[in-house]
Computed example of a mutant assay.
Amino acid sequence: MKSPALLPSALIGAVASARSMTPMAALAGAHLAGRETPGRLVLLGHPVFTAGALAMGVGELFGDKMKSAPDRTVFLGLLARVMSAGIAGAALAPKGREKAGGLLAIATATPLAYATLAGRKRVMRRIGQTKSGLIEDALVVSAGVAVVAWALNRRG
């Protein structure tokens, strides 16, 4: 059974809902490994942006554990999710369907940011900010890498 063509775009949007920089970092890693995306990879074709995406992905993982870290639903947090999801969703969409893939990723990331925040806060009350963040990191980073790997391997 063949999965819908834009499913990777929706899934990477879900990843962006929890970690805004993970989709770009996963794509940057794939780019460094010489993998090509089905859709046009905006910005990450340039080495400075590739390095920046990886650095921001790692930085976000550390910053999330700080007591002063803002909620992911503040304006700048949502803006980062929209931008990252849009670029990654477009890159993982089939050639010629980049706009639809980007829009679908954004439409997935934005409302899920509120849902993932609510879930994180619930877990944070039980086990604390650092532990809940590390668990979320493991799940989200694994999901981001898996979605990108799956999307790049399913191209035909």
Rank of each mutant, 00 (worst) to 15 (best):
L92T: 07
R81M: 13
P94A: 09
R120Y: 14
S84F: 11
G128S: 08
L79C: 14
T110F: 11
L112E: 12
A146D: 00
G86F: 01
A151H: 01
L134Y: 15
A80P: 06
Y114A: 14
M124E: 15
M124A: 13
S142M: 06
T130V: 12
K131C: 02
R97G: 02
A80V: 00
D137L: 10
V123E: 03
A100K: 09
G86R: 10
A93L: 03
S84R: 10
S84H: 08
L103T: 11
L139I: 06
V148H: 00
T130Q: 13
A105N: 04
T108F: 03
A151T: 03
A149F: 14
M124D: 06
M83A: 12
A143Y: 07
T116I: 13
K99S: 02
A105G: 12
R81E: 06
R122I: 01
G128Y: 05
L117W: 00
G102C: 10
A85V: 07
R126W: 01
G89F: 09
A146S: 04
Y114D: 08
K99F: 03
L139S: 11
A146K: 01
E136F: 04
R120K: 14
I127A: 08
V141Q: 04
D137A: 13
K121M: 01
A149W: 15
A85E: 10
M124Y: 05
V140Q: 06
V145H: 12
T116A: 12
R126A: 15
L79Y: 14
I127M: 09
T130P: 14
T116V: 13
V123P: 04
V82W: 12
A143K: 08
R122C: 03
G102K: 11
P94F: 03
A109W: 10
L134K: 04
V141E: 04
L112V: 13
I135Y: 12
I87M: 13
A109I: 15
E136C: 07
G89P: 06
A109P: 06
A90E: 04
S132W: 11
P94K: 05
Q129I: 00
I135G: 09
G86V: 10
A80D: 09
A151E: 02
A149Y: 14
L79I: 14
L92H: 07
A113L: 13
T108R: 09
I87G: 04
A107R: 14
A143P: 08
V141P: 12
E98Y: 02
K121S: 00
L104T: 06
V147E: 11
I127C: 11
Y114C: 06
A100C: 09
A118Y: 09
G144C: 14
L117A: 03
L112D: 11
A143T: 00
V148S: 03
A107F: 13
G89D: 04
A80E: 00
A149V: 06
G86I: 01
I135K: 10
G96R: 05
V147D: 12
A146F: 08
R97L: 00
V140Y: 05
V123K: 09
I106N: 09
E98Q: 05
V148I: 07
V147C: 15
R122T: 15
A109N: 12
